[in-house]
Design a protein around this nucleic acid. Structure first.
Lengths: 371, 371
DNA sequence: ATATCCACTGAATCCTAATTCAAGCAACCC
DNA sequence: GGGTTGCTTGAATTAGGATTCAGTGGATAT
């Protein structure tokens, strides 16, 4: 059984065709190659090597590694034994070339913004891994790098893309032209159809406003994220719109950058106004936390007695005992799952029309606001 | 000049060899392909397509995309014009296959532990991107998945690997056998040579102990990370060793899991002891924060008056006004830079012997400890 | 005018697994 | 037994860019 060795060099007799290239003799029985996964000549073990040693054709080896292929048990055992012996692993690169499926997806994020992107990344990766799909990571430093980055994305023949970074309509249509499925994460267009997974920022913000307004607050302020953040704008606008509906106007808006310090600074600015707010809507949790710290430590205010602060995101830090932040929890895991599903559906079936799935955030009552 | 069209189908006359495969006629001048980057037949544009339209050989096209290759300006212009016109991008997969360089590196992390891994990831990605190397992400859920994951790593022919996850010596030697450079991040072996970038956990912890001891603390406790975390063990042992040297023994150790809640729980346990500690060394910042919150909010203690708490990591959260944690700052960016450099050096020159670079943490004085 | 050199260029080949197609073979049916 | 069906198997081909090697043509040197 284990004599997978003897079998003479097969029958490629006549012409010394392309098949007879790999010089080395079949490894002498028992004399293991010095290094696992390497031929004597120091190259990676290929399916041809396995075929030669096992005395079968390369096609057979290939088939043995394809689940569901038509191979006899005897053949499969023989090949698998040799493969293990030589440390053969199919070359995913070569496979991708011929199948036109790389089993890689690109995930694009711009590090600047949202602090929970790294967490998103881990969530996505886990779920793709389960499907034997791998994440090729692209991080964006500056908006200007987008085109160069996209070139790289094309070159790597990824099967699909998840983007948590902003892309222009033109850039998006390149994806369509090239037939590469794209799913946006918390981003989409007004009148340009794209697939996207979103959290309903506006709705969540309106909910917060309702609660605060219902509790008697009339003196609002908003701390927004960076002006070029789509999510921030949605949140900020959601809040302002609802406030307006409720008859609250002249709401001061301070621009932050999603960071802790910017929350503190924004709070200081708000306090320097003629009529400081008693309810502050922050575009994310971290700024809300900065806000609270400034209120308490710089102004000696009590929260929520003196001022109510609410955030958005539902980060774990917001739940820490020092903050107990009232916020909207963005269902990160569910959204990650949905994004992966949506993308893979489109990889399998590129004809699917664009679809947008919007998840509602979950109100998370803490103790940072009087409600 | 722009009549890059006419030029008859070159001179591959006689045998209809492999070269004449691509069926389509040269695109009629001016009649742009409907989709950028696609041929009329809906396939991706290849270097052959560009060659055909430009009336040159495929070799020429290839050379034009290789910086420093011997090509005349005229040729380069002609090819580049057509390439742009057709939306051609070289196929990185095909290139990898022939060059045996994928320009991809694997980054392995296990999500469970260290909360700053996501941040590390972003740092690494940025730096690799600068070198036109791409990060293929592998996240580990359970230790048991390692082997399956490593198989995937081999299959994708990555040029190198950075691992922030624990690997067995056997697994590490596979890397060596296969000639894939491996750099550990905050992990290494006692008597098994590997390349690694580390923060000197022990030293940092000793420094903290010295400071606390010097300030008169004698009643210590340690909150460790998970038992199977190498980093946690180094930190914990570093602290205990130094304490022993200073004559402090019988130091209670509570095991946490690096999470906020585990810090709180550990603190409760410590307070239930006959003689509660007045100085607590936590294996990371997040647990230290949990500890502080428990002390303040559950036991009404003052920090640092009633109890000193120190952490390790230097996360941004530790600096928040509510905590002002005294800790050791692990130089994440410097370490990321070093890891990328070390890996790429080894990719260029696989003969380099294993090397370990150890960075000292920086003492960060907050207000969570009486020093 | 002939020789020498250099910068380019193209044909052929390589990399490695998947797939197609036809052949081989055994079991099965009537 | 001859024909048929169905399962296996191998040879040849494919994917698409890089590289080698043998030119080709022009410029300079003799």
């Amino acid at each position: 059984m284990a004599e997978s060795t003897a079998k003479p060099p097969a029958k490629n007799s006549a012409k010394t065709s392309a098949k007879s290239r790999r010089g080395g003799r079949a490894s002498k029985s028992g004399t293991k190659s010095p290094k696992l996964g390497m031929t004597e000549s120091g190259k990676r073990v290929t399916s041809y090597d396995v075929a030669r040693v096992a005395g079968v054709s390369q096609s057979a080896v290939s088939r043995c590694f394809k689940p569901g292929a038509s191979v006899s048990k005897k053949m499969r055992d023989k090949v698998m034994t040799v493969a293990k012996e030589l440390g053969f692993q199919p070359n995913a690169i070569a496979r991708s070339l011929i199948t036109r499926r790389s089993n890689m997806v690109a995930v694009i994020i711009n590090n600047l913004t949202n602090l929970n992107y790294p967490e998103l990344l881990v969530q996505l990766s886990r779920r793709f891994d389960e499907r034997h799909v791998h994440v090729l990571l692209f991080t964006l430093e500056h908006e200007s790098d987008v085109d160069k980055m996209l070139d790289q994305v094309w070159q790597y023949q990824v099967d699909g893309v998840i983007s948590a970074a902003r892309l222009s309509e033109e850039q998006v249509s390149f994806f369509e032209e090239r037939g590469v499925p794209l799913v946006f994460y918390n981003r989409s267009f007004q009148d340009f159809p794209v697939s996207a997974i979103c959290c309903n920022q506006e709705e969540g913000e309106r909910l917060l406003v309702n609660k605060l307004h219902g509790a008697g607050h009339r003196n609002f302020a908003v701390i927004s994220g960076p002006a070029d953040s789509v999510v921030s704008n949605q949140r900020t606008q959601g809040a302002l719109n609802r406030l307006k509906e409720l008859g609250v106007t002249k709401v001061p808006v301070e621009e932050g950058d999603y960071g802790y310090d910017s929350g503190r600074i924004a709070f200081r600015h708000l306090m320097s106004k003629r009529k400081p707010p008693d309810a502050i809507l922050c575009a994310n949790d971290v700024m809300a936390i900065g806000c609270m710290d400034a209120a308490r430590h710089e102004f000696g205010l009590k929260i929520p007695e003196d001022v109510s602060v609410v955030g958005f995101d539902g980060t774990s830090t917001g739940a820490w005992a020092s903050y107990r932040l009232t916020t909207i929890d963005q269902p990160l895991e569910i959204m990650a799952e949905a994004a992966v599903n949506m993308l893979m559906e489109r990889v399998e079936n590129p004809e699917l029309p664009p679809e947008k799935r919007t998840f509602s955030g979950v109100f998370l009552e803490g103790e940072s606001a009087q409600l």
